[in-house]
C-alpha cells in the first residue's frame, strides 16, 4: 500500500461530519479534507482562490464551503468559486474504502503551477 496509487490518510471517523481537517504537504500546498453533513468526503488545496483563506476553517453546508475570510462559497466537488465570484482551487481525487480515506497520490505530491508553499501559513 505504501507506494500504491492511493495514499491512506486514516479512518473516516477522524473528521467530524460538517467539518474539515488539514494535511500539510512538505514542499507543497496544504490540503483540506472535508466531511460533509451527508457523509461525503472531498479534498481541496487549503487556499481560497480569492486571497488564499484557509478553506478548512469555513462553514461546510451542502457540498460547498464558505471561506472564513470573506465569505466566498467554493464547491467542494470542483473547487470552483460559486455565484458571482470567479476562481478555482485544485481538488484532489479522493476515495473512501472500508472506512478509510485515500487521496490520489500523484495529485498530492505533484508540484502544482505557481510557487509552492504559498498557502495559508497555518490553517
Amino acid at each position: 500500500m505504501m507506494f500504491g496509487d492511493w495514499l491512506d490518510i486514516g479512518p473516516v471517523t477522524q473528521i467530524e461530519a460538517g467539518t474539515a481537517r488539514t494535511l500539510p504537504v512538505q514542499g507543497g500546498e496544504e490540503i483540506a479534507v472535508f466531511h460533509t453533513m451527508r457523509g461525503e468526503f472531498f479534498a481541496l488545496v487549503n487556499a481560497c482562490p480569492h486571497r488564499k483563506g484557509p478553506l478548512s476553517q469555513g462553514i461546510v453546508h451542502g457540498d460547498v464551503v464558505t471561506c472564513p475570510l470573506h465569505n466566498w462559497t467554493i464547491s467542494l466537488r470542483s473547487g470552483n468559486a460559486l455565484g458571482s465570484d470567479e476562481g478555482c482551487v485544485p481538488s484532489i481525487p479522493l476515495k473512501v474504502d472500508a472506512g478509510r480515506i485515500y487521496l490520489k497520490r500523484s495529485a498530492v505530491v505533484a508540484p502544482r503551477a505557481g510557487p509552492a508553499g504559498t498557502g495559508a501559513r497555518a490553517a
Binding site: 505504501m2 486514516g10 477522524q14 473528521i15 481537517r21 512538505q26 490540503i31 497520490r105 498530492v108 505530491v109
Partner: peptide, 19 residues
C-alpha cells in the same frame, strides 16, 4: 484537539505518512 491538529503530514517524493 482535532481542531488544532493536522490529520498527518505528507513528505514529498517518497510521500510517506507521518501520524
Amino acid at each position: 484537539s482535532d481542531l488544532h491538529s493536522h490529520i498527518a503530514t505528507v513528505r514529498p517524493v517518497a510521500a510517506e505518512m507521518e501520524k
